[in-house]
Design a protein around this nucleic acid. Sequence first.
DNA 1: TACATTAATCGTAATATTGCAATAAAGCAA
DNA 2: TTGCTTTATTGCAATATTACGATTAATGTA
Lengths: 110, 110
Amino acid sequence: MGVTKKEKFNQEQNEIATVAKVFAHPARIAIIQQLFKLNACVCGDLVNEIGLAQPTISQHLKELKNLGIIKGEVEGTSVCYCINDEVWNKTKKLLVNFLNQNIHSEKNCC
Amino acid sequence: MGVTKKEKFNQEQNEIATVAKVFAHPARIAIIQQLFKLNACVCGDLVNEIGLAQPTISQHLKELKNLGIIKGEVEGTSVCYCINDEVWNKTKKLLVNFLNQNIHSEKNCC
DNA sequence: TACATTAATCGTAATATTGCAATAAAGCAA
DNA sequence: TTGCTTTATTGCAATATTACGATTAATGTA
């Protein structure tokens, strides 16, 4: 059906999955890395750097904006994007906490 | 087109996106959490715990197996799954390294 | 052997994602 | 104003994902 049954899962599980989905495309990873490298970057420069069509980059930027980890500011005809530190740190905490899980039991089978 | 243009990105960017894609479903997050909690878990118990149909859980387990972060051992008619620590730690490092990025520049716009 | 139990696979329907051409919108420059 | 530049949006085609019923395969049990 292509539709995820979110109601079967708790809020944390859904939040982790939602964040991971935004990270689940190399173009969005590349955009994030570029914004960290330059701190700020105009949309058109991202299009040149990454090599996908302008509407495609715009769509990826929109998903990153929806999650809140980037923000954009209009500068004339351009839009300058950068990382939203507050949201980035919250997101980082959520994922690092998940990744730092340890085995709770001694039982094992494989 | 629904198909990702992986050739436009470097290996690290594609690896991060691939891992994130596996984490991009709450059922797979729930399976991982359950395996950490119990250390080992039979497929049928995961089906009962999570409440999706058996073929659906089996499909999610397959994706986790493909990435390598879980492994399964046949025990009679059951299959017992657990976390593959080595792969989990590699995956953790890849993502934590990405999440720990810092701003490289002083320039800013927003 | 026959039957039950468990998990994987197959096939399919519904929905989501990716990518881009075409277009719209918004600002600047002459 | 007109034309240019830049980015967002629309619409669509191709592909991927999610979910599950039906079936198969493999093992254990009577």
